[in-house]
Design a protein around this nucleic acid. Structure first.
Lengths: 239, 239
DNA sequence: CGCACTCTTGACCGCACTCAACGTTGGTGG
DNA sequence: CCACCAACGTTGAGTGCGGTCAAGAGTGCG
């Protein structure tokens, strides 16, 4: 990816000082005071990715870190024969770039139209020395991600298809903060859900249908889910 | 667990200043200078766990963080019906306590006889403010753990039994730094390997036998593995 | 010697995968 | 406007990998 695709000024939204960025409260940047933000803004550049566009591949030199300002990204690992495991998905405010040494250990691809704030890794690491609050914030996020990763390992290693799908719906509801009985927008299509849950697309489809017939969820359309019985869904998730 | 089981002085080995601790170079403590160590030693206490003894359960209030100074620990999550997923195992030098909020999100249990260095969480967090190098070291370790967790998600979600066992043997070899053709001590028994790889004990046993018959590994006894064909094993691991 | 525990091996089963067909939707162009 | 096509999702039929159940081998300990 050529550098000139990135526009200076953070989030590609002309908010040069990050002050007005709508995800500031959600993102790592929220750990900095207003007086410290300019140092971050100085190294930021913004970009928009179209659906399906690749941010980087596994194995690429890890030269940048990112904050998601809009849309959604999926992270994944590939095997040589094409098998794929989606290891996570990122929503606005999420930080990307913790888990690597000198190269990215996973690929990242836009799901919907996505906007990002990019920081050159070296310069970002220098800022960590300058602002311990930023490093502290990152450590907190890394802890949460590790906890989520362990939950996902339990899901992938031990849960049945029904338990996996129920867990996924509940996890999604927790992440986007749904109101009671509201519809949730699914950030992933069936293929991606399958690769996230370690199943096939057919099994995901069948299981959605099963949970719908059981009255636990509603499926108003292909991109939405409705939680109809949270308690029962938690039971189905295997607690 | 009552506090008086913990003996002041770090690692339960009377090395009050951590200076002579044999895992200092491997552990987070290595990030501190000699002049800074006493501050860490002042809040450290040591303990020994016998095989099978529990350090803490999932859901316990997370009051301490630990460094493993000897032996081995397994981390695991349980489902209400007894299904178990081992999410990782710790060897000397490893740090324990990153992945939680106010309560531990996994259980921890000694595999072999294990010695630990314990730090009260609050006091440890205060030291992080004082010594940014310590926080930096923890963030680096969290990154590595996240990378390992994603690799494990690929294994659990997409690999066959043969690929899982081959991956496990190679991962173990990388972690204990085996010499060529040397025997590796298995830190986990068959039941634990099964719960780590998302398989049953029978499948693990059958797959070890299969890899032995294929000439990829040797099984001198139940607690050792020998890498006989590293290249072929990497091929079998699914790369 | 008996008992408990771990590991291995065999026979059978079932859940999720594979293969296949069909339905639905949205975009494109005649 | 409809015909066509591609992408995505759903559903059905049959299969196979790994799970379940069961028996037996090996080992250590009282």
């Amino acid at each position: 990816m050529s550098l000139d695709e990135w526009k200076p000024g953070g989030a590609g939204c002309a908010k040069a000082l990050c002050e007005e960025c709508e995800v500031r409260g959600l993102s790592v940047c929220g750990a900095l005071r207003s007086t410290e933000l300019p140092a971050l803004a100085a190294i930021a550049s913004g970009r928009r990715l179209e659906p399906g566009q690749t941010l980087f591949h596994e194995g690429d030199p890890a030269e940048d870190v990112f904050t998601v300002t809009g849309g959604a990204l999926k992270l994944f690992k590939l095997m040589s024969d094409g098998r794929r495991q989606i290891t996570g998905y990122l929503l606005p405010g999420d930080f990307l770039g913790l888990a690597y040494g000198s190269t990215y250990v996973f690929g990242a691809e836009a799901i919907s139209g996505t906007t990002l704030c990019r920081f050159p890794r070296r310069q970002f690491l220098r800022l960590l020395d300058e602002f311990p609050a930023l490093e502290h914030e990152l450590l907190g996020r890394a802890s949460s991600e590790l906890a989520a990763a362990q939950e996902q390992m339990l899901l992938l290693g031990r849960k049945t298809a029904r338990e996996r799908v129920a867990s996924f719906v509940l996890q999604l509801a927790g992440r986007v903060g749904s109101e009671h009985d509201a519809s949730l927008a699914l950030p992933l299509n069936r293929t991606d859900i399958a690769d996230y849950l370690g199943l096939t697309i057919e099994t995901v489809s069948r299981t959605f249908t099963l949970l719908r017939k059981e009255g636990l969820i509603g499926l108003p359309d292909k991109q939405q889910v409705r939680l109809l019985a949270r308690e029962a869904l938690q039971e189905a998730a295997g607690i």
